[in-house]
Design a protein around this nucleic acid. Sequence first.
DNA 1: TTTCTTTATCGTACTATTGCAATATAGCAA
DNA 2: TTGCTATATTGCAATAGTACGATAAAGAAA
Lengths: 109, 109
Amino acid sequence: MIYMKKKYYSQEQLDIATLAKALGHPARIAIMDYLASVNACICGDIVNELPLAQPTVSQHLKELKNAGLIKGSIEGNAICYCINEATLEKFNNYMKHITTKIIEKNSCC
Amino acid sequence: MIYMKKKYYSQEQLDIATLAKALGHPARIAIMDYLASVNACICGDIVNELPLAQPTVSQHLKELKNAGLIKGSIEGNAICYCINEATLEKFNNYMKHITTKIIEKNSCC
DNA sequence: TTTCTTTATCGTACTATTGCAATATAGCAA
DNA sequence: TTGCTATATTGCAATAGTACGATAAAGAAA
């Protein structure tokens, strides 16, 4: 018997997957780490912090920015990047939500 | 002037990126959602839950399993999957850690 | 103005991911 | 045994991601 496929993806599932995907590369995790650890918002120092060429770092920054995980503001001829707390919070809440749901139940394996 | 690249990625950064990458697809988020919401650990019902063919679902389950996000146990000729809480917790802790670091500082943009 | 500095974009090569039909495997039922 | 059910694997086509050299853009400095 052929079953009907029950559903496509919800907007929330799409959103969370986009955020996770943006975080799904060590270079981008390293950028987030770095931005979180630096007192002020630093721009192109990230290039010196990573084992990657400048265009590659720029590309990773663009992806993080597109996902809403970081913000960039122009400062002279440099650009100041920093983490967008709100987006990170949204992601954390979703993950916490899933985790809580499991802990409430008795898992069977 | 040519700067030396300061570092490569830490093991933690590699691990977290792997977890994020595994979560970086709506189908795999939907699987996690479903596993979290179902009272008992269900196996191939996931195929009926998603708009994907069985081999594709099997592939996504394999990736989640490889990342350590889910566990599978054989039950007759079926396989019972469930979320690996420990891995999810590890991921959540890391994300929480980054978020906390930012909130402590005054971000500048 | 010219030059330097900083970041973004383009073009391209390479690699990885996604999805599925077909097939294989493995246990259960008869 | 044969057939059925549940998953996994293979093979392949299409798409997406990664990395970087070359170059562009745009403000700062001289």
